[in-house]
Amino acid sequence: MSVSEENAEREPVAYQVSAFLERRREQIAQRWADAALFRTVFTVSRDEAVEAGRAVAAALAAVAASGRLDDIRASGFEAVRDQLGRMAASRARTGTDPDGVANEVAALREPATELLRAEFAEPDAPEAHEAVLALTVLMGTLRLVVMETTVSAGEELIARQREQLHEVATPVIKLWESTVAVPLIGTLDSARSQVVMESLLDAIVAERARYAILDITGVPTVDSLVAQHLMKTVAAARLMGAECIVSGIRPAIAQTIVHLGIDLGTVLTRSSLADALAYALSQQGVEIAPLRAVGAAADAGTR
């Protein structure tokens, strides 16, 4: 008996809330426009914020009318899902974490419930409590919907960035005749080092390189696994007839390598890419001298 009675009572409450949201849409939207969420998303004009607030209030009214107050899949939300997603994404771009966004959505509840309470002659009457409770449930569902769209937007972003990361992974640069270099940036795992090795070896063939420089300035840490990957790459390049030089070992990394007891004795190392290039050039008999000195010598010769 109690269950059916409760349901019978709740239905009208939901309609009541729906009717309230419809009636007071304009006022709610005006108040929401001043709330942190709308104010920070629609920085350009307040009208836009009010317009967005109106759309959200209308969607809530539709959901309340359908009686599915706690259903995040309620069809009423579909109309504003895109908009909510954009708002959440724009907050995320400005560096607000999901907690912050959730709190900002939660802050929308207070202005709405205040207005609803004011609707009743007696704010402490049971009907008033019922209605406020129903609205609170509805606002909680809205919060969930926002969080859900935020999370799915985040997942999309991660997937897109993962693709980009693979694209920018490892360019092989021709530094000089028969000299190629790979600037390694980021963590070296086995999948990446495989890609590095393949592209380096292909470049050695294509450029007929005698010297290959692996620059690890951008590699944050070197552990025994990374060192092993480096040594494999060096060995493979050597098998192709190219001499490999590892450059850009920062002092901290040099110490780590020594502490870990990793033997890089078979690997030719230089402290910077410039040093490595200088080595490769000198081995090929290329000498680089400042033009001025040459000019001065020429001057001395003519006088």
Binding site: Q194, E198, I204, A236, A237, L239, M240, G241
Partner: peptide, 13 residues
Amino acid sequence: LAGMRPAVAITLV
């Protein structure tokens, strides 16, 4: 040893 292919070098390593 001359003319090793990249794939062969990787396998050997």
